[in-house]
C-alpha cells in the first residue's frame, strides 16, 4: 500500500512539467526514504534524477518498496487537472496496475480522483558516484534559462567556461558568435539574485543547447540553479524542490571526434 499526501501539490505539477518533454516513460521508485525517479532521455545522452524525501510529505505511507511505471506525458495531463494550491495524494495498492491521484482544494470543497494505468518499463539504473567538481556555479535560474534560450537562437551548442573572472557561455552559428559572461555577485540583500562561483581549477566544456533548454523547464521550481562541472564528465544542473529534495539533470559533454 502506497499513500503519499503532498500539501504543496503545485510542486508535483511543476516537477512533471520539467520532466515530460525530456523523458517519455519512467519508473517512480517509492521507498521508506522517499519518492524518486531516475531516467534517461530517448537518445541516452541526458539523465534525470528526482528525489522527494518522505519528510516533505504531510503523510507518507509506503509499506514496501514499489516501482510505478508511468508515462510522464499522461501523468502530466492528469496533474494539470489539479489547481496549483490543491493538496495532491498519490495512492497505489501493491498488486494494482493503476495509480490514483487525488486532488483536494485547500478548503476541502472539491475533491477529485484520477486513476491512471501503470506500465511495465524496463529501464537501466545507472550508478551515479558522488563527485568532486572542478567548478560549481550557483546563479539565478531565470538568468540561466534566458541565456540558454538566447544562445540557442544563434547556435546549437554552448561552451561553458569557468575561470576566476566568472562563468562564460559561448556559442557560434552560421550568423555569428555570442559570448555572455556572468561575474560573481554575492547579492547579500537578495540571495536569490546571487551568482556564486566555487572554482578549484578552470574548466571549459561543450554541451548541446537543446538539452540545456529542456532542463530549464524546471525554472519555476527554484530561484537558483546549480551547475557543476568537471573536465570530461557530465554537467549536473540542479534545481531544489522546496525543502524536500531536488531534480538533477546530467548531460554528457560533446567531445572532439
Amino acid at each position: 500500500m502506497l499513500e503519499l499526501r503532498l500539501v504543496q501539490g503545485g510542486l508535483l505539477k511543476k516537477v512533471l512539467e520539467s520532466l515530460k518533454d525530456l523523458v517519455n516513460d519512467a519508473n517512480f521508485d517509492c521507498s521508506a526514504s522517499g519518492f524518486s525517479l531516475q531516467a534517461m532521455d530517448s537518445s541516452h545522452v541526458a539523465l534525470v534524477a528526482l528525489l522527494l524525501r518522505s519528510e516533505g510529505f504531510e503523510h507518507y505511507r509506503c509499506d514496501r518498496n514499489l516501482s510505478l511505471g508511468m508515462n510522464l506525458n499522461n501523468m502530466a495531463k492528469m496533474l494539470k487537472c489539479a489547481a496549483n494550491d490543491d493538496i495532491v495524494t498519490i495512492k497505489a495498492d501493491d498488486a494494482s496496475d493503476s495509480v490514483t491521484f487525488m486532488f483536494e482544494s485547500p478548503n476541502q470543497d472539491k475533491i477529485a480522483d484520477f486513476e491512471m494505468k501503470l506500465m511495465d518499463i524496463d529501464s537501466e539504473h545507472l550508478g551515479i558516484p558522488e563527485a568532486e567538481f572542478q567548478a560549481i556555479v550557483r546563479m539565478p535560474s531565470a538568468e540561466f534559462a534566458r541565456i540558454c534560450k538566447d544562445l540557442s537562437t544563434i547556435g546549437d551548442t554552448v561552451v561553458i567556461s569557468v575561470t576566476k573572472e566568472g562563468v562564460k557561455f559561448s556559442t557560434r552559428g552560421d550568423i555569428g558568435t555570442a559570448n555572455i559572461v556572468c561575474r560573481q555577485n554575492p547579492s547579500i540583500d537578495k540571495p536569490e539574485e546571487a551568482t556564486i562561483i566555487e572554482m578549484e581549477e578552470p574548466v571549459s566544456l561543450t554541451f548541446a543547447l537543446r538539452y540545456m533548454n529542456s532542463f530549464t523547464k524546471a525554472t519555476p521550481l527554484a530561484n537558483q540553479v546549480t551547475i557543476s562541472l568537471s573536465a570530461d564528465l557530465p554537467v549536473v544542473v540542479e534545481y531544489r524542490v522546496a525543502e524536500m529534495g531536488y531534480i538533477r539533470f546530467y548531460l554528457a559533454p560533446k567531445i572532439e571526434e
Binding site: 534517461m40 537518445s43 541516452h44 550508478g127 551548442t157 564528465l233 557530465p234
Partner: peptide, 14 residues
C-alpha cells in the same frame, strides 16, 4: 566536429 557522448558511458560501471 564534436560528437555527443552517451550518458551511460560515464555511470554504467560506477
Amino acid at each position: 566536429l564534436k560528437s555527443q557522448t552517451r550518458i551511460a558511458r560515464f555511470y554504467r560501471f560506477s
